[in-house]
Nucleic acid binder design. Structure first.
Length: 859
RNA sequence: GGGCGCUUAGCUCAGUUGGGAGAGCGCCAGCUCGACAAGCUGGAGGUCACUGGUUCGAGCCCAGUAGCGCCCACCA
């Protein structure tokens, strides 16, 4: 690779914008992200990306999630495993349909004018034009996905997989059609599942309404926040143990405004403490009432239609009004009839659509459902037995609790964009046919067929993502090579919506769990601690951050700020990443511009893909190599444990403080002199540091690697370092650590006595400090006599014109004060009989040693 | 209503089995020392939310209080 020395020598700042695009293109050209489908899943490493919506733009959640996945995928690719990061997008039924409908509205059209076929075509062309945007954005992040295997949840093969799953679930009796209470979303004009509903606190008015008891002058007063639903009431319920009403059970009320006779029934569900203890029952518009209604065989009246307007069943006075208008009208009418007993403000939680933001209208409609209990059972056991491990572990219980209470899933949606449900009806003989491929005629009567109008919930297709993307239901090489995938990272909000369902379908259809590990990552909040959200305007655009600081900076920052608990977005951490990239660049410049490296040797090595073995000749060399190997071991272990934050900060601090601040400063003279040993050590260390950091900061490390004389190809496919235990050297570590501490002491001392920064101070030392101590602290150690004016550790500082005697005296006194206080502390502690008797001996001994040291320094 | 989590330096966060409180940013002071001022050196700054308990010893363990956040839940 032709490395341009001029850039290396002249660029004193890391400039990501100039490099990232080029480097990414090189990776793609190398085909590194597209592994052959060979071998078994156990040998390879695979990850399925949580498929972003085609309508989506890269947000911080994607960026964090992607940084984590890429770190692990890259690490494993470097380890020589066939690493596949499955990429694709989700058709996102409601969201995408909404986007295109909005476009149409802007043109003054509606989807109904277009008709289904034309509308779907229109969505497809929208998808062709804009659908790849988010994929391009993932590239900006440096994500090493397999862009050649990109999938879409509506592409032909995928649809086939969805239909196969639907058919099999139907044949097993899990999927069925039923008239049932659903969450109707007036915004998307479709039913949605329980998981797509969010409850919000709302202040409503609680109305108390008198229902006269038939044949009596008594009334039952019921309370409701939705008086308009009374038009669909079919009973009044009281608690069976409620003595006040015991005599009324079995009798009837007369529904005001409507005149319908309502049976008074007894049901445990009614709380006698609430209000008057009488509950109006509206099986058509309230989930609880629906349950009670089914139990008691009550009529289900739909007074509110799917359009949010009152139906004929509401009576001609109200039919056609919106629910809100009807509420006003009903209240007014009740007031007029003297039936309205009370109105009071009432705060309660109300379901809203997570998709459209509109208030859910519970209503009864004909939908397709999937029974989940039997699918859930093996998925529960898989997690119980840790066949799927969930990290952090508290989420395991959350998952299990939810799965054990799982309820049927409403899978049909009244949309046009999506997988049209593979069910055909024959109107002639009322036959229902479920098939993977469209049948031509009715098998029973040969009559014409019409396909179900509804489409499947988007999450139905997402649920099979890990294997449908690999070619299931065919037995493909991809499936054999990459399923089950190795791990999955996700935000906890889709643990049930997506993760749980993948585990269920994976076991049921692909014969194994879809992944071995699930890592539930934290949520990055806005800087002010609020949720990042487009509607609140609190979002921070990852692409802007990449433009400003580079992808490496953002990746490092996100990983470093990630945690098991939610955190606020930290500009400082991203800046830390940017600074680290810059530091990597500059430290590498220092090394690469000054090492003495035999070019012939380099060619030999390049051919073999080797970096020359290090030649440690000084304790400092051994110290550095030892610290490096420990860091490699520790950072690697943390990555493997999904502890990205500590992995990142640990790599940072090794590189910055130990390698740059100490080692490079220590070896500069040797480096400038062109010493080959130190060159070898530095090149070795640089190679390992670059490789270690590459999964976290791929761009800057790859670019620097171009200039490394041992370069044998791209770093993206270079060997990931294995810690070499033989280089760990405890003695060297202790020895150099001592020198570092002494250097620090001396620096602090000279700063305190305000010695001019540039002057070298004379001193005499007990023993022989390491060479670098005097050089880095700017002390000259000699054998001269002369009166010491101060003692700093083992060093006696001698008098000189540069040092102000008064400052020294003051400093000395301050130090003695500190020492006296330390001695006092130690004496008190060791004088405590309990401590000496009960604390572990080594702790007591440590305390004795310290006390001794302080005493001797004070003496 | 149930469950989970959080409260540590001015800010954002770490603190592994209980043994003298850490990082990054910010702040103060000093440095054009042949990689880097996106740098180098030194420094200031904390009743670890509160109360009580266990312990020789508590940021860490236990109980409770307050505040904040998230998830689940059919109470009109």
């Amino acid at each position: 690779m032709a490395a341009d020395r001029k850039t290396l020598e002249e660029a004193t700042r890391w400039d990501p914008s100039e490099v990232e695009g080029r480097v990414f293109a090189e990776w793609i050209e190398g085909g590194y992200f597209h592994p052959e489908a060979e071998g078994t899943a156990g040998e390879s490493f695979s990850v399925a990306i949580p498929p972003p919506n085609v309508t989506g733009a890269l947000h911080m959640g994607h960026a964090l999630n992607g940084s984590m996945q890429d770190a692990l995928v890259r690490m494993n690719r470097m380890r020589g495993r066939r690493a596949l990061w499955i990429l694709g997008t989700d058709h996102a039924g409601i969201a995408t349909q909404a986007v295109v409908e909005k476009e149409l509205r802007a043109e003054g059209k509606s989807r109904h004018e277009l008709g289904r076929e034309a509308f779907v075509e229109r969505v497809w062309s929208w998808k062709e034009e804009y659908g790849s945007r988010i994929v391009e954005q993932y590239k900006r992040l440096g994500a090493s996905c397999d862009y050649e295997r990109e999938r879409f949840t509506l592409d032909d093969g995928y649809v086939r997989a969805v239909y196969r799953v639907f058919k099999q679930l139907y044949d097993k009796g899990y999927i069925y059609r039923d008239n049932y209470m659903v969450n109707w979303d007036p915004g998307s004009h479709s039913a949605i599942s329980d998981l797509e509903v969010e409850n919000r606190e709302v202040e409503d008015t609680l109305y108390s309404i008198d229902y006269p008891v038939e044949g009596s002058d008594r009334v039952l007063t019921v309370a409701t926040v939705r008086p308009e639903t009374m038009l669909a009431d079919t009973a009044v319920a009281v608690n069976p143990g409620d003595k006040r009403y015991a005599d009324l059970v079995g009798k009837h009320c007369v529904l005001p405004l409507v005149g319908r006779r309502l049976p008074i029934i007894a049901d445990e569900h009614v709380d006698p403490e609430f209000g008057t203890g009488a509950l109006k029952i509206t099986p058509g518009h309230d989930p609880n009432d629906f349950e009670i209604g089914r139990k008691h065989g009550l009529e289900e009246i739909g007074a509110i239609g799917p359009d949010g307007r009152m139906t004929e069943a509401a009576g001609e006075r109200f039919a056609g009004l919106s629910a809100a208008e009807a509420q006003k009208a009903v209240v007014a009418a009740l007031r007029e009839e003297g039936r309205l007993r009370a109105e009071e403000p009432y705060v309660h939680s109300v379901p809203f659509s997570h998709r459209s933001g509109e208030r859910i209208e519970p209503l009864v409609s004909l939908q397709w459902f999937c029974r989940m209990d039997e699918l859930a059972q093996p998925a529960i056991e898989a997690v119980e037995r840790d066949e799927v491990r969930i990290t952090p572990p508290q989420w395991k219980r959350v998952y299990l609790d939810w799965m054990r209470e799982i309820r049927p899933w409403c899978v049909s949606r009244q949309l046009w964009w999506g997988h049209r449900i593979p069910v055909w009806y024959c109107d002639a003989c009322e036959e229902t046919i479920v098939a993977e491929r469209e049948p031509e005629r009715c098998g029973a009567c040969d009559g014409p067929l019409r396909q179900e109008e509804d489409v499947l919930d988007t999450w139905f297709s997402s649920a099979i993502w890990p294997f449908a993307t690999l070619g299931w239901p065919d037995d493909t090489p991809e499936l054999r090579a990459f399923y089950p995938t190795s791990f999955l990272t996700t935000a906890r909000e889709i643990l049930f919506l997506w993760v749980a369902r993948m585990i269920m379908t994976g076991i049921e259809f692909a014969g194994d769990v879809p992944f071995r590990d699930v890592y539930v990552h934290s949520v990055i909040q806005a800087r002010d601690g609020r949720r990042m959200s487009k509607s609140l305007g609190t979002g921070i655009d990852p692409l802007e951050e990449i433009d400003k600081h580079g992808a490496d900076a953002l990746r490092f920052g996100l990983l470093a700020m990630s945690s098991t608990q939610d955190v606020r977005y930290s500009d400082a951490k991203v800046q830390q990443g940017r600074d680290l990239a810059n530091k990597l660049w500059n430290a590498s410049r220092l090394i690469l511009m000054n090492v003495k490296f035999d070019q012939n040797q380099s060619h030999t090595n390049a051919a073999q893909g080797q970096v020359p073995a290090p030649v440690p000749v000084t304790p400092e060399d051994r110290w550095l190599l030892s610290r490096l190997e420990r860091t490699i071991g520790s950072v690697t272990a943390k990555l493997e444990a999904y502890d990205f934050a500590h992995a990142a900060t640990e790599a940072y601090s090794f590189f910055w403080s130990e390698l740059c601040d100490w080692y490079l400063e220590i070896v500069k003279p040797r480096l400038y002199e062109g010493e080959e040993d130190v060159s070898a050590t530095l090149l070795w260390a640089l190679e390992r540091v670059l490789a270690l950091l590459h999964p976290l900061m791929p761009f800057v490390t790859e670019e620097i690697w171009r200039y490394h004389p041992a370069n044998d190809g791209h770093l993206a496919v270079h060997a990931f370092p294995e810690p070499d235990e033989s280089l760990v050297d405890v003695e060297a570590e202790a020895q150099v650590q001592e020198g570092i501490e002494l250097t620090r002491l001396l620096r602090a001392w000279r700063d305190l006595v305000e010695a001019p920064a540039a002057t070298v101070l004379p001193a005499r030392a007990d023993g022989e400090p390491q060479e670098f101590v005097g050089r880095l602290a700017r002390f000259e150690f000699g054998d001269d006599g002369g009166e010491p004016i101060a003692a700093v550790g083992p060093v006696k500082v001698l008098a000189s014109a540069e040092v102000d005697a008064e400052a020294v005296a003051a400093r000395l006194e301050r130090r003695r004060e500190e020492l006296r206080s330390e001695v006092g502390r130690g004496e008190r502690k060791l004088g405590n009989e309990g401590f000496v008797a009960k604390a572990p001996p080594e702790v007591v001994e440590e305390e004795r040693v310290k006390l001794e040291r302080y005493r001797s320094e004070l003496a």
